[in-house]
């Protein structure tokens, strides 16, 4: 937890991007459909059901597979030499430089600063009644949890299991799920902020929200 927030911020300020490599899923002949520097869009629509921009077509066994962008951003480092060539699986074609927006940066900083409680298995999760009652009365940053506190109820196959918090004591800073949602194994459920860092984190987030351009 010994992270210098200023360093983190500086890093994101100097490089507010995330580079997503675009690699071939399997062997085949590649036909690129984008150019260097082209802006591409990720999946859209309320349910992300509209596919993103067509990136390339990979053909294997006369099966032309259209691969679309999973992130929005700019195409960079495109390898034009492989156009129309046979490639192996996992071959890097280009990267999509995705510009991080304010919320994405906050999310990334929080995942590094907060103590994250991940889902032990794929199940439906509910906040413990005491916690949700406390959250209704006061802002969630004011709800503190300690090691051994019952914070969650995991509901699986009609069996409810109480999950106790094991970790550093702190304020319940972020809840990553809606009560009753099914959460995949390993996905974050709660983010707890140690009390000594709470004010500092809040200050940094406020700064990002007000000062960041996009």
């Amino acid at each position: 937890m010994d992270i210098n927030l200023n360093d983190l911020l500086r890093r994101y300020r100097s490089h507010p991007f995330e580079d997503y490599p675009v690699e071939t899923p399997h062997t085949g002949v590649v036909f690129l459909k984008v150019k260097e520097g082209q802006t591409v869009k990720g999946p859209g629509g309320e349910w992300l059901h509209r596919p993103g921009t067509l990136l390339y077509v990979i053909e294997r066994e006369r099966n032309a597979k259209r691969i679309t962008a999973l992130w929005s951003g700019q195409v960079s480092g495109i390898r034009l030499d492989i156009e129309g060539q046979f490639v192996e699986a996992g071959e890097l074609l280009f990267s999509i430089r995705h510009q991080l927006d304010k919320e994405e940066i906050i999310d990334r900083i929080l995942t590094q600063v907060l103590y994250i409680l991940p889902a032990p298995q794929r199940a439906r999760y509910f906040l413990a009644p005491e916690i949700s009652a406390k959250m209704e009365k006061q802002p969630k940053e004011g709800v503190s949890v300690e090691s051994g506190d019952e914070v969650l109820i995991m509901s699986l196959m009609k069996r409810d299991t109480v999950i106790s918090y094991e970790g550093v004591p702190g304020a319940l800073y972020k809840v990553y799920f809606k009560s009753g949602d099914t959460v995949e194994q390993g996905s974050p459920l709660l983010g707890i902020c140690p009390p000594d860092k709470l004010q500092y984190v809040q200050k940094v987030i406020r700064r990002i929200r007000t000062e960041w351009e996009k």
């Binding site: 399997h26 294997r60 066994e61 006369r62 099966n63």
Partner: peptide
């Protein structure tokens, strides 16, 4: 009768392999 493979529409969700 066609000698090729096709991709299952659920391939990205369930990891289905291409089908001959």
């Amino acid at each position: 009768n066609e000698d090729c493979t096709v991709t299952c529409p659920n391939a990205s969700k369930y990891g289905c392999l291409d089908l001959w």
